[in-house]
Nucleic acid binder design. Structure first.
Lengths: 182, 182
DNA sequence: TTGAAAACTGGCCGATCGGTCAGTCAGGAT
DNA sequence: ATCCTGACTGACCGATCGGCCAGTTTTCAA
């Protein structure tokens, strides 16, 4: 079909698409609204017509990953501890690999995250997931889970040359070594 | 010599001290020269009198950590492989913990690091050290070493409430689990 | 066909950035 | 007393930022 996409959603989607690429390549702060507009083939005013401001563009970029993470957290919440740990290990690797662009963006935003209420739920879910992944209340294991996630997120940054499967395999080995579930 | 100019070095040192604190708290990009000047109790022009520009201030902040890392790398280069791995594991943990403020700053600068020739040697040394820490040419172990360093650097960020010893112990356990040297 | 709503834009605004420059000032050498 | 110089500063610059608004173009139901 000629897929008569409503102009509204089509432009909006393209802005988010290009914003993601630019945030990933150069970081949030270094990307201007003009850069996004130019890449999306519209004017800066159009970007601000669709989004209330630059933070809103960021929130839209992060939204799909945030939704997936929220779903994972709620799923883990209804499982016994060991199963929740196994689920989070498996699913979070997939999630991070699939949304590695978002991971890239997030790392850049972290220093300025306090002033961004738009991404607060994402951070909160991340913290909750860390606890599930630890699989224990032992502070050491909790810290090791945080350590694991830091390593995983770092590994997903700027690793476009690696295949998804290779990346998944590496993260799986690393997480199981760290969390003693080899 | 009269122990070098007292005022000169005193002001310079204070600028670096305050710049480090501000970079650590808010990030490099979010910190203006005016912020640094105000914190150091001088004018913005004075900061630019002592340093050729904002990147030069950053380089001065990173310098002590960069020097320590360079020393570690050269020491590891003269050791057999297994000894070099053990040395880097032990010493790099100390280094990261001791310079955790610099680690904080570095994470923020990474996205923009390509345009900063001042810090290129530091990054190069970091890469070299990763290879020593892997202790093997196996690509998997190399990747795991990168994974470990990412986790370690992440762990050293914003962990002021933890004691140095606790942080060191955690990193030691994590590295040995990941690199199979428990 | 038409007219109102939606989509879009050029131009402008105030704020802030890193950086420059002419000049002030204290104090040591002569 | 004079001069010089290193340390320092206020005022200012061009560039760029996010955001705003009046006005134009496109869309589409009636």
């Amino acid at each position: 079909m000629a897929v008569t996409t409503p102009a509204r959603e089509r432009t909006r989607r393209e802005i988010v698409r290009q914003a993601m690429a630019l945030f990933q390549a150069g970081g949030y702060n270094a990307t201007s609204l003009q850069d996004i507009a130019t890449a999306a083939g519209c004017s800066k005013a159009t970007v601000l017509y669709h989004f209330s401001g630059k933070p809103a563009v960021l929130a839209a970029v992060l939204e799909p990953a945030a939704a997936d993470l929220a779903e994972l957290v709620t799923a883990a919440a209804e499982l016994p501890r060991a199963a929740a740990q196994e689920l989070t290990i498996q699913r979070f690797i997939d999630l991070a690999v699939e949304h590695r662009g978002v991971v890239d963006v997030l790392q850049d935003v972290i220093p300025v995250i306090e002033q961004m209420p738009e991404v607060a739920p994402l951070v909160a879910d991340g913290l909750r997931m860390t606890q599930y992944m630890a699989g224990s209340d032992d502070p050491l294991e909790q810290d090791l889970a945080k350590f694991a996630i830091n390593g995983l997120l770092g590994e997903c940054r700027h690793s476009d040359e690696r295949t998804d499967d290779d990346l998944r395999r590496l993260c799986d080995i690393a997480l199981r070594r760290l969390l003693r579930r080899a």
